[in-house]
Design a protein around this nucleic acid. Structure first.
Lengths: 349, 349
DNA sequence: GTGAAAGCGCTAACAA
DNA sequence: TTGTTAGCGCTTTCAC
């Protein structure tokens, strides 16, 4: 008995406790221990309790590799952003991970990755390493990765960007409609000379939002001056630089639409430095509905996209696919809305 | 031959290719395949090439659970924040994950977790599930978790918060010194009526920064008025509310020190709403050196802590522990510095 | 209700 | 240089 105890102690230090150790102490076979641990009903309640007690005392925790091997599961969920580094704002990133983490069944691990560096390092993804994958996609380019996952039959859901070319579980928001409403909101308030700061050219959102504002302009016969269209990269600094450029423009503009809040904030900074008053001298409309947009001065009128809804719903259907083998295709579009604040002038006489 | 191919095809769909499948096709044993795949030198170059070719053709990828089981590795690195939800700013969170992801050897998975909800769901961590753990710690309360990891002999490094009570790999920044310098920076410019917005009471940073500003006050014989000390929670909104309170204070204050940039930004918003000019009416000093602090209006003077250095160094030593079994204790403190911008008045006559 | 035994896919020690 | 074999820790079928 003493000898046994000592052995166990050594084991605890040198290597982990296994079900065999527990079996030895409990005087049962390791399969019985397995049954107890898995709350099987093919086991006597008494023995189960006894075994569980011992397991607790020994601070047993299962070897997940062994369990996963026999169960053919990994309990890993990959969360893949187009890039963690470029074009993904801290607000967006945090919001996505937080929501997924909150919503995810706690038996799954959340493994965070950027497709850009992942595909550059690994030549391919290993299906056995992921029970499911969430792609938070910005770029059409991600399709290569997405298709690979699809081919490997790994449950997948693509968030944020609409995929039209092929069938896939896909949750996103109606950005086109949001931008369209936003531009009309500007036009209705008398704005005709509207500048735009666009986003990264390789991001689909840039194309979607661009065609939406162009459509709104065309419908209201607003002339489109290429000089007013600035290139940004979704980073604050690029908004700031674009703002500086806008100031140097020959023609006066009365409003600015930035493709995201961060760039709007950068532009506001540029305007303030030059003594321009917002919204008196220039109105600003952002996109995202980030937390910080509420605390700019003046607070930023912006188009909110429901990131949390998208992520939350995405997790829901991914888990449904994994656990219930549900394979009916799910495509859902959430609506965007304008948050009216104080950066747009109510009416320019 | 045709029969074989068909079998393989079915296998590819129904279950993954294994080294046995490759062995069968190559006409070698599965251990030879294993050798080829692991680039062993106990193998003929020709056979290696042939096997690798077949593996490539079949789009083989190893079953990580099986490999991990025999190697006693998981290739998982857990990144545990005190909380993902509360008190962790998007900027901080993004910066940490981004840096760790960049710096981490690509064979490791990064699993993101919040200690708060993790410990609530799982009763204990499984050593076999983590080759190493990075704790980005804010609360003393995390010690329970940290000690558990320590007991289980999982390589661990604790970032962000200094641990004095016990020996552990620990990387952090000199926040006390930063705050001390910051307050003196204010005092040197003539400020005596200084308000402070503190952070969450359960975060160690709050205590560290508090005793630092108190020390600076005491040394310069600045009287400490409890009315000037506001409670925040590191969120923007709490800074905003504190800002409102400051305005309603009986005595006029000339400067504000906020325990982080987000709260400083919130307070700036409150001040602006009330028509106060920064820094003419009130100077503001932040803490963190977040990206957004550069783009407020006016830009925020702040104490920068080197988050990237901390994370980068943390990853380095964790990998060193895991791969080189290096077990000499590593404790490192990075310096903070003041970023002088435009929210502090050069001199109040 | 329980135990014996097989096997998940892989690595590595030992033989040849 | 290669094949044979054992075994990692676990679940699960099949006997009893």
């Amino acid at each position: 008995m003493v000898l046994l105890d000592t052995n166990i102690d050594r084991k605890e230090i040198i290597m982990s406790i296994t079900i065999k150790d527990i079996a030895k102490i409990a005087g049962v076979s390791h399969s019985t221990v397995s049954r107890a641990l898995n709350d099987s009903n093919l086991i006597n309640e008494e023995t189960k309790k006894r075994i569980l007690d011992i397991a607790n005392q020994l601070n047993y925790s299962p070897n997940t590799s062994a369990r996963n091997l026999v169960l053919s599961k990994s309990y890993n969920i990959g969360v893949f952003f187009s890039s963690i580094h470029y074009g993904t704002s801290p607000y967006f990133f945090h919001n996505v991970i937080r929501t997924i983490n909150e919503k995810m069944n706690d038996k799954y691990n959340i493994i965070v990755n950027g497709i850009d560096i992942y595909t550059q390092k690994h030549q391919s993804i290993n299906p056995k390493n992921f029970d499911g994958i969430i792609v938070v996609s910005q770029r059409k380019q991600d399709d290569i990765f997405i298709k690979e996952v699809l081919e490997k039959k790994i449950p997948i859901v693509v968030l944020n960007r609409e995929i039209k070319e092929f069938q896939i579980n896909n949750i996103f928001s109606n950005e086109a409609e949001g931008v369209y409403k936003g531009i009309n909101y500007l036009i209705e308030r008398g704005h005709e000379n509207i500048a735009v700061i666009e986003g990264r050219e390789d991001f689909e959102s840039t194309k979607v939002r661009r065609s939406a504002y162009l459509k709104a302009f065309r419908e209201k016969n607003i002339k489109i001056n290429q000089e007013y269209i600035l290139k940004g990269d979704y980073g604050i600094e690029s908004g700031y630089k674009a703002g500086k450029k806008i100031i140097s423009l020959s023609k006066k503009i009365s409003a600015l639409f930035a493709f995201n809040d961060d760039m709007a904030i950068g532009a506001m900074k540029a305007f303030s430095e030059e003594g321009l008053k917002i919204p008196e001298d220039i109105s600003i409309l952002g996109f995202d509905g980030s937390i910080s947009s509420k605390y700019t001065n003046p607070s930023l009128t912006t188009i909110k996209r429901p990131i949390q809804d998208i992520c939350s719903y995405g997790v829901e259907i991914l888990i449904d696919i994994i656990e219930n083998k549900n394979n009916k295709l799910n495509k859902k579009c959430f609506e965007t809305c304008i948050i009216e604040r104080n950066s747009v002038l109510e009416s320019i006489k």
